[in-house]
Design a protein around this nucleic acid. Structure first.
Length: 284
DNA sequence: AATCCCGACAACCGCGACACG
DNA sequence: CCGTGTCGCGGTTGTCGGGAT
């Protein structure tokens, strides 16, 4: 049995959105929100669109505070550094660039940034860090956090072009770098169990293959309750993602279901990865 | 002026995973 | 426990506009 289509493709409009459709969707969202169901939304809103299409349109275009246009030097560097570290996890990268969407960043990367880097160095044989099989936000996502030995982390180990780009800037992007993988401000993994229910085992595997292919694989195994792992330091962590999830002051604010994963990147403190997994009390 | 090419961006599609009945 | 519905992610494709020929 195949996957059931998410909508009646014969009765659904495709292609670019008209201003009228945008207005309808925006008006509906302003009044009712998603109502917890994107699939049913177009019908309620009087749109002949697939729910997924509505969601995409809203998240990437109609949502308030969306920023379009030129990426700044700082944004370039954040994208490069994070891509060098975590690969094409656009939603995570987007969470560090307020107003930018994952789609935006993905497009920007594919059309401009990648070429920019290619122009500064060859990418032959070099790329983002090895990527674990894709896992969605609900689940236990391995986090790859490479760090170099330089105080001003040199991404060129992973992505020479990124290093070149970053070095162009007078303002170096500082990472919390030690000669090992930095997990938390103390160098240890902060593992918090949010509901004190169900011990979570966190396994760390430091895979020091070569200097150019270091990677940290964090394997997290959670019990039935939610669990949080936190990398990095500082108490100012905050982030948001395209689904409206936000993390601020130790709490998640999520517009949807009880799930989340976030990674915060701070130029001063380095990466801070958060994961609230499962549907336990930890996932607000 | 017409055509081609290419870059940029919007949108689509398929998949994996969780929630829920 | 299982099946279905839904969500969200990331890769890919489609479309359009501008520049080059």
């Amino acid at each position: 049995m195949g996957r059931a289509p998410c909508c009646d493709k014969n009765n659904v409009k495709k292609g670019p959105w008209s201003p009228e459709e945008d207005a309808k969707l925006k008006e509906f969202m302003d009044k009712h929100g998603t109502g917890g169901n994107w699939i049913a939304l177009p019908q309620k809103a009087g749109l002949r669109r697939c729910g997924k299409s509505c969601r995409l349109r809203w998240l990437n275009y109609l949502r308030p505070n969306i920023k379009h246009g030129e990426f700044t030097e700082h944004e370039d560097r954040v994208i490069c550094s994070m891509y060098a570290s975590i690969g094409s996890r656009w939603s995570i990268i987007a969470s560090q660039l307020p107003g930018r969407t994952d789609n935006d960043i993905k497009n920007y990367w594919n059309t401009k940034l990648k070429k920019k880097l290619l122009g500064s160095t060859t990418m032959a044989g070099v790329g983002p860090p090895p990527r674990a099989p894709r896992q969605n936000h609900h689940q236990h996502r391995p986090v790859l956090l490479p760090y170099s030995s330089s105080p001003h982390s040199n991404y060129s180990n992973f992505f020479p072009g990124a290093g070149a780009l970053l070095q162009q800037s007078a303002e170096p992007l500082t990472l919390q770098a030690q000669d090992h993988y930095m997990l938390g401000s103390s160098g240890s993994l902060n593992h918090m169990n949010n509901n004190n229910n169900g011990a979570s085992a966190v396994q760390l595997q430091l895979l020091h293959a070569t200097a150019a292919h270091r990677q940290l694989q964090v394997k997290e195994e959670c019990g039935s309750g939610g669990a949080m792992i936190a990398f990095g330091c500082g108490d100012q962590q905050s982030c948001s993602s395209s689904d409206g999830t936000q993390y601020a002051g130790g709490q998640y604010v999520h517009g949807g279901r009880h799930h989340g994963k976030e990674m915060s990147f701070d130029n001063n403190n380095g990466y801070s990865a958060y994961g609230v997994y499962g549907s336990g009390a930890g996932a607000v």
